[in-house]
């Protein structure tokens, strides 16, 4: 009992954001966030965090390595490459909508769009491109859009995540909203994202090791055996929200855009490792 309490107190003082600072300072948050995990798991190198739950069990890791010998996401990458290269009815294509033709840019997303004042994830950018050329938006969680994002992400493999928060009031507000979402308890079970992915990171919930929040976005989209196909980061947000019996937000909502902005920014400097495979 006493020991458990001492641990909790230590955790609370260490865990960044459990008592958030008054003034927005993303760079200081990032340092505290990465430092917290590095102190907690001193044997893990920064780039190891992109392997999420597989850092904590030799057994699970061995099974996962075996799965990766024939990566289950390779069909999605191939399908995504074909879709990405297909011309729109108006003769344009996806490449025309992106810097560097969309190749090797996934590490720069989510991005703050100065025109709209909103955060744009790579998936949302793909849909904006379609709509600009008269096509309907695709589902942001799976299917063709997940394939396209998987392909685009594969061209960034190993590139350091580089999310920028410009000195713009709206961008900082979006970052702060994402941070607040991450640390707020919700649902009947009353968990925050941080309850599981900061406080209980590396521990087991039933048979599943909980991925630390650091690096948690780097392998998306992922092929998940439980899903039987490839899904995007928002698909996982929805799943984790349902797990705590709370009502998920809409895939293109400000809440999820901002959450992705905050969470991906916290992993700045870690390598893109997507698409990935998970059980």
């Amino acid at each position: 009992m006493k020991r458990a309490w001492a641990m909790i107190v230590a955790l609370a003082t260490l865990a960044p954001g459990l008592a958030p600072p008054a003034k927005a300072d993303p760079a200081a948050d990032l340092k505290a966030f990465q430092g917290y995990f590095q102190t907690r798991f001193p044997t893990l190198a920064l780039q190891d965090y992109v392997n999420g739950p597989y850092n904590f069990s030799a057994n699970d890791r061995a099974q996962w390595k075996q799965i990766l010998e024939f990566p289950p996401y390779s069909f999605a990458v191939d399908a995504g490459k074909t879709a990405f290269g297909t011309k729109f009815p108006d003769g344009a294509d996806y490449a025309s909508c992106f810097p560097r033709g969309g190749i090797g840019i996934a590490q720069d997303y989510p991005k703050f769009d100065e025109k709209t004042g909103k955060v744009v994830t790579l998936g949302i950018a793909v849909n904006e491109c379609r709509e600009r050329h008269g096509l309907k938006p695709l589902s942001l969680t799976k299917g063709e859009l997940a394939d396209i994002v998987a392909y685009m992400t594969s061209t960034s493999d190993g590139k350091p995540i580089h999310v920028v928060i410009p000195n713009d009031k709206r961008a900082i507000a979006a970052y702060e909203a994402g941070k607040e979402y991450f640390y707020s308890r919700r649902g009947q079970l009353n968990f925050s994202c941080a309850s599981c992915h900061v406080q209980a990171a590396g521990k087991r919930l039933r048979g599943q090791y909980l991925a630390p929040a650091l690096g948690i976005t780097a392998s998306f989209p992922v092929y998940r055996s439980k899903w039987g196909d490839v899904g995007t980061l928002v698909r996982r947000f929805i799943g984790c929200n349902k797990k705590v019996r709370s009502v998920p937000a809409k895939p293109d909502s400000a809440a999820y855009r901002d959450l992705a902005y905050f969470l991906t920014y916290m992993s700045n400097g870690l390598p893109i490792a997507g698409p990935g495979a998970r059980s």
């Binding site: 909790i8 955790l11 609370a12 459990l18 009947q188 406080q199 209980a200």
Partner: peptide
């Protein structure tokens, strides 16, 4: 323990 991750089974019905 306000920080606990253990759900409030009674209070939250």
């Amino acid at each position: 323990n306000p920080q606990t991750v253990m759900p409030a089974f009674g209070k939250n019905l």
